[in-house]
Amino acid sequence: MPSEALLQVEGLTSHYGPIQALHGISLEVHPGELVAMVGANGAGKTTLLHTISNVHKASGGRVVFDGREITRSAPHKIVRSGICHIPEGRQVFAPLSVEDNLLLGGFTQRQDKAWMAEEMARIYALFPILQEKRRQAAGTLSGGQQQMLAMGRALLGRPKLLLLDEPSMGLAPLLVAEIFRVVRELNEQGVTILLVEQNAKAALGIADRGYVLETGRVVLTADADTLLADEAVQKAYLGH
């Protein structure tokens, strides 16, 4: 199992100035898996994803994706190699139309117009509201719709691996359930996903495996079900 990991992170460290945010993170994501990384606010979840995407520089350790080391690759090259990152807080391009946002998601796929058209249709089918509002500025969408847009946009990048940062942030519970259902569905369609969440229950509920992150360290890793049943996890994150 270890050799065929799609994403392999080894001893990754990262700093903000003198403050160390990640203290040697190691993790693996295998093709087809949905892996959840849970942890409290400030545990370093977002920093971890940013460091994998290299929008935040790693100070040590390695990131290997698809058999190639990408620790120091430029962010846009990492995207081209097949990692799509859906950032925290969605980060849709607010003044641009929904359709332009989606087209930007397919920025790396320009050679394949037919595929793009097909994929756009598939995303509109997945999120009909996006088709309805495709000429509207993305900033006018509600939080849930923006999350759908961000996910659709990432799918157009034809990801081998999707990094999902806190998709439940600021959404009503009903919408959270809807978003997690879509995440599960995408994974079932074959997209490998690394999901970072504060909402441990919902995330572990759909994941295959999980990691628990605390102040920049992985403190626990197991199958999602095992983690959900774990007493310490229940106490710390599930409010039991």
Partner: peptide
């Protein structure tokens, strides 16, 4: 055009644009 969208994207957020695979 495609490059124009890239321009407008990086206007909003360079990090988000990088995450789209745009060489900002």
């Amino acid at each position: 055009s495609r490059s124009g969208r890239a321009l407008r994207a990086l206007h909003g957020s360079e990090v988000a644009a990088e995450m789209m695979g745009i060489n900002t």
